[in-house]
Amino acid sequence: MNQVAAQPKFILLNVGRAVHQADWNWRNISSPFIRLHFVESGTAQLIHDNATYDLKKNHLYLTPAYTNHGYKCEGPLTLYYIHIYEEADSQASLFELLDFPVELKADPLVVQLIRRLAAINPGRGLQQFDPWAYDNMSTLVKNIAIQKSMPTGYDMEVQGIIHQLLSRFLLHASDKKNNIDQRILQSLQYIRTNLHQPISLETLAATCFLTKDHFIRLFKQHIGCTPGKYIQEKKIEKAQRIMMTQDVTIKDLAYSLGFENNSYFNRFFRKMTGENPGSRKKKIRSIAGDGNA
């Protein structure tokens, strides 16, 4: 396995304990964040693309970002859930470089760490377990802002726990270059380093020496979504992260992300988040300033 060039930065979005009774049944989920599940008791199934895993007591399960997956539960089930956002920006995502196992037996320290993470984050549980209720851009950025507003010492402990949990999977990860097309990895790098300008599918396909249609099919096969959706989400994620840390005008923000005019950016932003960028900026700045949900 190759060494990761730079240590990744992770942000806690949600953590909590859930008790289900045949009501954890969802399909076709694909999110921009990582999911960890620790099973305390009961039975259910985790479906990753064409593979199905029977969930076992005292085991930990990993679902990387942008992985198409689902759940099937026909009886009682108690588990902890942890949602984690990886800040990759211009560097490669850990999950773009490596293949991780889905299932691992949890050692006693892992169990303690998960319970500690939940204990020091009592207000970070999900209000609803339906992914369509919480898996959206506004909720994602709100949770990122809350975590970024926390004291440094608290954030260090959260980071430490997340790194320890993911390190268990990293120990068993393998180099992904044999399983993901190198041309797609190249296109991801191009997207990450060119979010400041327009990115056309024609340009991406040309950098990979593929036809446009072939590139779109290959990208969706390996990443789990279309290149257009991936680019849109990355631009809007970056726009809202900039709103958290910089007091920039909406016009300057639009130009910094490669939009030709402010009006187009406003329409694009509203389509992705459900509100205009000016209103969203006020909310984000408020959350980032006081740390309240």
Rank of each mutant, 00 (worst) to 15 (best):
I11D: 08
L12K: 09
L12M: 03
L13N: 11
L13K: 08
N14K: 13
V15W: 00
R17K: 15
H20G: 01
Q21Y: 10
D23P: 05
D23L: 03
N25E: 03
W26L: 05
F33N: 05
F33A: 06
I34H: 12
I34Y: 07
H37P: 00
V39H: 01
E40C: 04
E40H: 07
T43D: 12
T43C: 05
Q45V: 01
Q45P: 04
L46E: 02
L46I: 07
I47Q: 06
I47E: 08
D49W: 05
A51L: 15
A51C: 05
Y53H: 13
D54W: 00
L55Q: 08
L55K: 12
K56D: 04
H59S: 12
L60W: 01
Y61P: 02
L62E: 06
L62G: 09
T63Y: 01
T63V: 15
A65W: 08
Y66K: 03
N68T: 12
H69Y: 10
G70V: 13
G70N: 09
G70F: 10
G70S: 12
E74G: 07
E74F: 01
E74S: 08
G75Y: 04
P76C: 01
T78G: 09
L79W: 04
I82K: 12
H83T: 05
I84Q: 04
Y85H: 15
Y85N: 11
Y85G: 08
Y85I: 07
Y85K: 11
D89I: 09
S90F: 14
S90N: 14
Q91L: 12
Q91R: 14
Q91H: 11
Q91D: 10
S93C: 06
S93W: 01
L97E: 15
L98W: 07
D99Q: 14
D99T: 10
F100T: 08
F100L: 14
P101K: 04
V102G: 06
L104G: 12
L104M: 07
K105I: 13
K105A: 15
A106I: 01
A106S: 10
A106N: 03
P108Q: 06
V110N: 11
V110A: 12
V110P: 00
